[in-house]
Simulated assay, not measured.
Amino acid sequence: MINDDIKFLLTVFEWLMGILMLLLIYLIARKTMEIRLRKKVEEHKIQMNDKLLHSILTGDFLRSLQADTKAKKLATEELLSHYSDILEGTEEKKNLNLLAESRLSGDYRRALSSYRWSTRMNALFHIEAFEMESLKEDIQDMLKRSRVTKEEKIKGLSFLAQIQHKGIYRLVTEEYQDLSYLEYRNILSRLDEKGLEQFMLGYHSCQLQLKFAIIDLVGLKKNLGYLNFVESIFSNSNGEERVRALKALASIGHTSNANHFLPLLSSPNWEERMLSARLAGEMKCVEAIEELVLLLQDSSWWVRSQAGQSITRFPEGKKILQEVIESSSDSFAKDMAWEWMNKGVYQS
């Protein structure tokens, strides 16, 4: 009985060792193939670099630039990615995109239908990097598939936004209502002013997380033409939406009537106190100086710090902070005044 058990265990051990040996051989063979492929790719990159750069700079696409093998395809892809990152000229970027379209679009089209998630995502990454508009229909088809992952949805929508696809507003507002604020912001950040204005016009019918993204992007644009839009949202909203609208106004650094926002310096909401202090500093609103000095004693460090920074924006800011250091009995106020006095950010 014991001998039978030992024989069985030895047999299992031999099978396991055999499997491990096969696995080791497979890994060695795969690594060897990868090294050989990498070597070929580097060789092709050296051979193709001058010709590819010539095509990008002149628009003359040489027939010898072909991506008809895996190594050549990878070499072309890597070179185009490199030049896409460093070239700034409009004509050069256009030539690069056309070259990518002519040499790689077929591979990427097939990759979008791959059963491997990594292959599909790699294709999406490069399609976006090269702005390959010819594949927009394929991207839209991909978004309709039942197996598409959230990461693919976001990447696909980002690409459509980047090429200013006319249907992006409908897609985002009707078919993809479950994304987060950051995901919406990532998508909408690719839009030009005309595209963003479409979302501004339909703002009140958008889901809340999408509204947050719109407000934040409008603030980042710092466009005074958007001022009425942001002020309207602030006046007609509450909670986080109202705070984000105030943040956008502070980012723009202007408001049509500062007196409407001065009372917020004593708001029970610390975020409103902080953002109104920032707005007062951006506008150098003299009427707010006394309240800003009081905010140096605020219970919130963020409010105190913003009050100190805003005071430095006034012509007499350094003098005001020095007076606080010398006369205030509040240790928080003194510390914050000293900190901003020594940050070298005084602006005249």
Rank of each mutant, 00 (worst) to 15 (best):
I325L: 15
Y176D: 01
V293Y: 00
D85H: 13
G281Q: 02
R242T: 06
S189Y: 04
D68I: 10
Y83V: 11
V230H: 01
E282A: 11
S328C: 11
P315S: 01
L24A: 14
R36E: 11
D335T: 10
S180K: 09
L246G: 02
I19Y: 12
S329E: 11
E101I: 02
V230I: 12
I86F: 07
F125V: 05
D216K: 02
K155F: 09
L210W: 00
I35P: 07
N228G: 05
F332H: 11
C285I: 05
I56A: 04
V286I: 09
L262V: 10
F8D: 14
S180R: 09
L10R: 13
W338R: 05
K166M: 09
A67E: 04
K39E: 14
V293L: 08
A100F: 00
G219I: 01
A75F: 04
S251T: 11
E323R: 13
D4F: 15
C206N: 08
G156E: 03
M341K: 05
A75H: 02
N269I: 15
Q209P: 04
S113T: 14
L191M: 07
G59P: 05
I35R: 13
S105V: 00
V324I: 10
N228H: 14
G225Y: 09
Q207F: 06
K155V: 03
E287T: 07
N259I: 07
N236R: 14
A129V: 08
F212V: 03
E193S: 15
N95G: 01
A307K: 03
Y346Q: 08
T173D: 08
M33R: 14
R30T: 08
S256V: 01
K319G: 03
R185V: 12
Q322F: 06
S235E: 15
L246A: 02
L135T: 01
M21E: 14
W338C: 07
A258M: 11
E133Q: 13
D178N: 11
S348F: 14
T119L: 12
Y226H: 04
L135V: 04
L87I: 11
L53S: 03
L188W: 03
I154Q: 06
I2C: 14
K72Q: 01
S180Q: 09
R278V: 01
Y26F: 13
L217Y: 08
K334H: 04
F8T: 13
N228D: 14
P315K: 02
I2E: 15
V230W: 00
L10C: 12
L279G: 01
K221V: 05
I325S: 12
K40C: 10
I168G: 00
S328R: 07
G239F: 09
E287F: 06
M274G: 02
Q47I: 03
A213I: 03
Q297C: 14
A123T: 05
W302E: 12
G106V: 04
I233N: 00
G202E: 03
T312Y: 02
A29H: 05
I311T: 00
S84E: 08
Y346D: 05
S266A: 15
Q207K: 10
S348D: 15
K319C: 09
L87F: 10
H204G: 06
E316C: 08
A123G: 05
P263G: 02
Q162Y: 12
E231Y: 03
S114D: 11
S180G: 15
M17F: 14
E14N: 12
G167W: 12
G317L: 01
A280E: 01
